[in-house]
């Protein structure tokens, strides 16, 4: 489903990704771990199409098509979803209006029909309930005044509504209390299917307890320096990244 080959990315003239190769099949969940500043969010942003990154080499194929040529909204329509490490606050735009605009944009991009207000409300309610998101939150401006945990749950809600083929979760577990972690963990696990794939960026094993990965990769110094099965995450939690420090140069 996703094939990243020798990806090299610069930000402001500084090389962050230095030849990253990774491929994820349909139905798989891969986890990426790695020290702060390793380039994990950079990878996530480049996949989603954020401006400010210069791809100096390599390629990214999504379902066989070159992903990097698409605008962010085209990637979303194609089924790529990024749950942001730092969800953005948008004053003056209600969460409900935002969600509806988003879902309808993706539906019409596929030649489908827009939801009318009533049907959309039903659809949203079916997804907010398990995530413990209140109607009051939907009325408020997007992420404005949301707690850290509420912002992350809002990301998972968007994922549930858009039903992406490839979801990239950038530290969706950080800043969550135990209960919120369970809600998010179960929420994300419920979205796992043989038809889609996930790339889970995390610092902790705890999210991976819910959503057991097929593969775990260590990203350090702009490259994947080690890959393994779910056991690798447990190991890293004990040993840390000291082993990879030398390779990070």
């Amino acid at each position: 489903m996703l094939e990243i080959k020798n990806l090299q990315v610069e930000v402001d003239g500084k090389q962050i990704l230095k030849g990253l190769t990774l491929s994820i099949d349909k139905g798989q969940v891969h986890a990426i771990m790695g020290p702060n500043g390793a380039g994990k969010s950079t990878l996530a942003h480049v996949l989603a199409g954020r401006a400010g990154y210069t791809v100096t080499g390599g390629s990214v194929l999504f379902e066989g098509k070159e992903l990097l040529e698409l605008k962010p909204e085209e990637r979303a329509a194609a089924g790529v979803f990024l749950a942001f490490q730092y969800p953005v606050e948008i004053p003056g735009v209600s969460t409900m209006n935002f969600l509806k605009t988003s879902v309808n944009a993706v539906r019409t991009a596929h030649g489908g029909k827009e939801f009318d207000a009533m049907d959309f409300l039903k659809f949203v309610r079916s997804k907010t309930k398990p995530l413990g998101i209140s109607d009051d939150m939907l009325k408020r401006a997007v992420n404005v005044g949301f707690s850290g945990g509420e912002k992350k749950r809002n990301e998972v809600l968007q994922m549930a509504l858009l039903e992406p083929k490839l979801a990239v979760l950038d530290e969706t577990d950080s800043g969550l209390d135990v209960d919120a972690l369970r809600i998010v963990g179960e929420g994300v696990t419920a979205l796992r299917s043989p038809e889609n794939a996930m790339l889970v960026i995390t610092h902790y094993q705890r999210l991976l307890d819910y959503i057991v990965p097929d593969r775990v990769h260590v990203l350090a110094g702009g490259r994947i320096v080690r890959s393994g099965d779910a056991g690798l995450a447990l190991e890293l939690e004990k040993t840390g990244y000291a082993e990879f420090a030398g390779k990070a140069a």
């Binding site: 954020r50 909204e73 979303a76 990024l82 942001f84 948008i90 935002f98 988003s102």
Partner: peptide, 19 residues
């Protein structure tokens, strides 16, 4: 904010208008 909306499938022009 613009990128956030686009990443959710909202075309650039519509995203600007919404913002």
């Amino acid at each position: 904010a613009l990128f956030y909306l686009q990443a959710r499938g909202i075309p650039e022009r519509q995203a600007r208008e919404l913002l």
